[in-house]
Nucleic acid binder design. Structure first.
Lengths: 236, 236
DNA sequence: ACCTGAACACCGTTCAAGT
DNA sequence: ACCTGAACACCGTTCAAGT
């Protein structure tokens, strides 16, 4: 983990967009999605709301900046020029996002919101670019680049979001409850569904109890990758 | 703007959970995500907030109920026992969700939120069940049911959300602007990205301008389906 | 059992005023 | 140019009181 120095603010440090974004991330990590308010920010930065509005247009823009900064950090980690295969690179990028969401659970909702609200802005191109380059490297025909990249990105965001929710919910349901216990609860709830209406969900219930998240996540990536590589030779 | 007198309610109709949910859907469809407030609901139903809280625990529960009702309606449309192949059934279910989100754009965010907040509640099993039965019918080994179904569901929700956002954004950016114009704008924005940092995204930009949404969406479904059917014979 | 409506605590945002 | 902080409009939620 990071963010060492807490300690009262240096009065001499000028307020800046970066300091605001940093404080916002800390607030979100600490107090959850509902924890980011201008009052809390104001207190943490020892200023008034007007000062924040000088650097940031409104809360929505702040959330965008926050999301962008965390995603950029997550994507910057990858080496980008090693001898890995495109498949391995894609797994790495996807795992990077997966872990970022695991570390910052609010990121899942935020990413979904931002990707659907303004797909042409900073975050979407960043993610598309990282994944898309590898899709191209796989030898997929150009006409399928968009479809293939979208499928990977959507799966990654969706699965990672679901996964982080499991962690968060485990904590919410009880401090003593860990992931395994929580998944057990979900599993039991699914098993108690109506047998006539929910035969399939009941059947997967026990499988959900014992799955390893990361393994499960990568299995999904591989599934999509299989579909993608089949695009190279559509004939049979 | 506002509060145009609402054609007064029938005083005799009792308030009920269903009437509240119905009014909430109308409000969301008409005024967007921000349009659903207890004040607006209160006015539309000609009551006080207390009356609503008698039937519904809080706003979060109301949103869950609203989402559930719309999703249930979307999934109920499918015939369920025709002679279609599993692939065709899956396409039908996915398209049903796709169209529901197209019709109710707020549904995308809402579904993402609810699926990640409480995956064991009503909506998730409903969607999983519909898709999962067909996955099973495809002959996928039981160990892969969860992975395969997740991949399909995540792709569907993500892609549909992105798509509905395009429609909404087109309207927001200008009343005279339609989808095609909007996608042109996005496309142009992508083309103006830095050529060194965003070569791939620039390359897909022109492709985005001319794509047909539904066709694009189904292509993604087929891609995932290809990956899934490959699970049947993992060898080779 | 069901509904009323004033009241509360809290939120994002603005803006005249200071330096 | 950058910051202060009181004030505004609005929100979800509560609750004593009515029927």
């Amino acid at each position: 983990m990071t963010t060492r120095a807490r300690r009262t603010q240096r009065r001499t440090e000028a307020l800046s967009r970066e300091r605001i974004v940093k404080a916002a991330v800390e607030l979100l990590d600490t107090a959850g999605e509902g924890g980011l308010t201008f009052r809390a920010l104001t207190e943490r930065l020892a200023t008034g709301p007007g000062a924040i509005y000088w650097h940031v247009a409104n809360k929505s823009e702040l959330l965008d900046a926050v999301t962008d900064s965390v995603v950029a950090a997550a994507l910057a980690v990858e080496p980008a020029d090693s001898g890995d295969s495109p498949q391995e690179e894609i797994r790495a990028v996807a795992l990077g996002l997966f872990e970022a969401i695991e570390e910052h659970p609010w990121l899942a909702t935020q990413l979904a919101t931002q990707l659907s609200r303004s797909p042409w802005q900073s975050v979407a191109p960043r993610v598309f670019e990282s994944v898309g380059r590898q899709v191209r490297a796989l030898g997929v025909p150009e006409g399928n680049w968009f479809t293939a990249t979208s499928a990977l990105v959507h799966y990654t965001l969706g699965a990672a979001g679901q996964n982080s929710a499991n962690t968060v919910n485990a904590q919410v349901l009880g401090p003593g409850m860990d992931r395994a216990e929580f998944l057990g609860t979900v599993s039991r709830a699914w098993e108690e569904l109506d047998p006539v209406e929910y035969p399939f969900t009941r059947a997967v219930a026990n499988h959900m109890r014992e799955h390893d998240d990361r393994e499960q996540f990568l299995a999904g990536i591989d599934l999509v990758l299989t579909g993608i590589t089949a695009l190279r030779s559509p004939a049979e």
